[in-house]
């Protein structure tokens, strides 16, 4: 499978996750977001960049709990508000959908 952005084709796995992390650009992210029916706002980009930074540092996507904690800290929210905030941005689940837009491989969860 693949997606088409500005005349270039990018390979994805069967679930639509980018195969090569290195091919990610903002335009690719926009296209991936479009497929997920997400309008990218500044908050979306912040989260996507956080994910990419985390992945670069730890070579693994963060657990949802790590995302919620980071947001709660940054925005002074409690855990529940931070979770709701995340789901508003990426309704199908912050881990699955946000990782896709960030160009990370499909998270395997804890197993």
């Amino acid at each position: 499978m693949s997606i088409e952005v500005n005349g270039t084709s990018y390979a994805t796995d069967e679930n639509g996750y980018l195969l090569n992390l290195g091919e990610w650009t903002e335009d690719v992210a926009k296209k991936l977001a479009e497929v997920e029916e997400i309008d990218m706002t500044e908050e979306h980009w912040n989260l996507v960049n956080f994910l990419r930074g985390y992945y670069e540092e730890y070579q693994i996507a963060p657990a949802v709990k790590i995302l919620t904690k980071a947001i709660a800290n940054e925005k002074g929210m409690d855990k529940k508000d931070a979770s709701e905030f995340l789901y508003k941005l990426f309704p199908k689940g912050p881990a699955l959908q946000a990782c896709k837009v960030a160009g990370l491989p499909k998270p395997t969860g804890c197993v």
Partner: peptide
């Protein structure tokens, strides 16, 4: 830790 108590480890 990685934020929740686990050590970032080479896979």
């Amino acid at each position: 830790d990685d934020g929740i108590g686990y050590v970032p480890t080479h896979h």
